[in-house]
């Protein structure tokens, strides 16, 4: 069973205590944006076999949204971090690069 540590309350929560919220760090499309931009925001998800940055909610705990970096090929968790960031913090990227030295993310590439 997948275990994630909630960065707010510190609990090592089991999957059943959490609700998955899909890809993290999405940028909302807005008035005046093209159809492509809306398509991207609404449907075009990163679906990597590898590092995935994603949203989770500690639904049956503190109730807060947080973010996680996880390997979709192995279920390995690189770290969790608060949702009020626009990119993964340094310690999480370090953990990712330990396994994927060439890892780059669309926002930092």
């Amino acid at each position: 069973m997948l275990l994630l540590q909630c960065p707010y309350c510190g609990v090592n929560a089991e999957e059943t205590e959490l609700a998955a919220g899909g890809e993290a760090h999405l940028k909302r499309a807005t008035v005046g944006d093209s159809d492509e931009a809306f398509e991207g925001y609404l449907f075009m998800r990163e679906n990597k076999k590898g590092v995935h940055l994603e949203r989770w909610r500690h639904a049956y705990g503190c109730g807060k949204w947080f973010l996680a970096a996880r390997d979709t090929a192995t279920l390995e968790v690189f770290g969790t971090y608060p949702a009020q960031t626009t990119e993964p913090p340094a310690d999480v990227t370090e953990n990712i690069r330990a396994k994927y030295p060439d890892w780059s993310w669309k926002e930092t590439a």
Partner: peptide, 8 residues
């Protein structure tokens, strides 16, 4: 299905 992205 499971609720999160997964290739395993």
């Amino acid at each position: 299905t499971d609720s999160f992205n997964n290739y395993t």
